[in-house]
Amino acid sequence: MLLKNSPADVVKAIFDACFNLVIEIVLQSDDHAELQNATECLASFISGGKQDLLVWAGDSGLVMKGLLDAASRLLDPDMESSGSLFVASYILQLILHLPSQMSLHIHELVASVVRRMQSCEVFGLRSSLILILARLVHSSTPDVNQFINLMLSTPAKGFENALVYVMPEWTKLQGEIQGAYQIKVTTSALALLLSTRHAELSKINVQGDLVKSNAGITTRSKAKLAPEMWTMIPLPAKIFALLSDALIEIQEQGLDDEDEDSEWDEVSNDENGGVQDILHPMAVPSSVNPSVEHLDALAKAFDDDDDNDDEYDNELTKVDPLNEQIKLADFLTNYFVNMYSTDQSLFDYLFQSLADVQKSVVGNVINK
């Protein structure tokens, strides 16, 4: 609470007091609440300190080792999912603020993320891990083939490689991902992957549409005997359909570029908030009991922060340049138009696999 939105000198003071202890909690604790709070604290240290964080302790290598050790523990496939719940926000801060240091460890990071995905049953954690991979897709531009080749060289238990495992999971979960920032990054990353025309993508089949049963009402007992059946379709066709769905959702909500983020995620962007609002009343003499005032101020700040349901959007939209660079409605419109004009045979092939409502919205875009 004190770290968020604080000036660098306040962040450094807190860093000097407890950074090593927070790392120690992540490395040693098995308490889910402690792990979650410590992870958020580390993410805020990185967000507030950025590159300066590495020299505050006098040994940049030691600080970086602590940060990487913490990431490794949080991505441990044997850890309970609740303990790892906020790891994605932490890792994204590492990628955004310490890019040159993290570039040395991307292969190990991707391998750890894939292992964590395979052992995780909690949707929120799995979708946040997909967000990490999506952000790495963007980091690999202009040569997104680098990311695909990295995935092809990364192992995944029970699968030929990480790409074969991740893409069916990603496309299956994409429609359930929540939050403006997450939707923007993951949707545009799928488009970037499709734009590579990489030969390995078309070799992967993923979950398509639910096969409707003609057996009448499905009771609970019938559902157990006859689980849901899905069609299987080529990955490029699925990505193309998901991009169409994203454009449909934007149009149905009546969003323009200015409204996009605010509709999907109503968060406070008050840049004057944070620790200054807490500390200011403490410096003002008062005739009433100061301890009560201070506690009330702290409690109010905590409640305001606790009401925010989307930590990624709150923290990452402020620092990730993608949030300003990409207006999703324009991005998707330009994407479909460019594909139609530069590779009409591929466009026609993918277009014919769309549902009627998807064809309608994509057709309207290219015929404008």
Rank of each mutant, 00 (worst) to 15 (best):
M1T: 02
K4P: 02
P7W: 13
V11E: 07
V11A: 11
K12F: 09
I14R: 14
A17L: 11
F19M: 05
N20F: 02
I23C: 10
V26F: 06
A33L: 14
A33H: 14
T39Y: 09
T39C: 10
C41K: 12
S44K: 12
I46D: 01
D52L: 13
D59Y: 11
D59G: 09
K65I: 02
L67Q: 06
L68F: 15
R73W: 08
P77M: 12
E80Q: 10
S81L: 04
S81F: 07
G83E: 07
A88Y: 05
S89H: 11
I91M: 15
Q93F: 11
H97R: 13
M102I: 03
E108D: 12
S112F: 08
V113G: 02
S119H: 08
L125G: 12
S128H: 15
N145R: 15
L152N: 05
K157T: 00
G158F: 01
E160M: 06
W170V: 03
T171G: 03
L173G: 00
Q174W: 01
G175I: 08
G175P: 01
G179N: 10
A180I: 12
Y181K: 03
Q182T: 11
S188V: 14
A189K: 04
L194V: 00
H198T: 05
L201C: 03
L201G: 00
S202F: 01
V206A: 02
V211N: 08
A223Y: 09
L225M: 15
P227S: 06
E228Q: 10
T231C: 10
L243K: 01
A246S: 12
I250N: 00
Q251H: 11
E252H: 13
E252Y: 09
E252R: 11
D256A: 12
D257A: 15
S262D: 01
E266S: 11
V267F: 14
S268M: 09
D270C: 15
E271C: 13
E271F: 10
G273T: 01
G273P: 02
L279P: 00
L279N: 03
M282D: 04
V284Y: 02
E293R: 08
L295M: 10
K300Y: 03
A301G: 02
F302Q: 14
D303V: 15
D303R: 10
D303C: 04
D305A: 13
D309V: 15
E311Y: 13
D313N: 07
D313R: 08
N314H: 15
V319G: 02
E324C: 00
D330F: 03
D330V: 14
L332T: 06
M339L: 13
T342G: 06
D348Y: 04
D348E: 11
L350E: 07
L354G: 03
V357G: 02
V357M: 09
K368N: 12
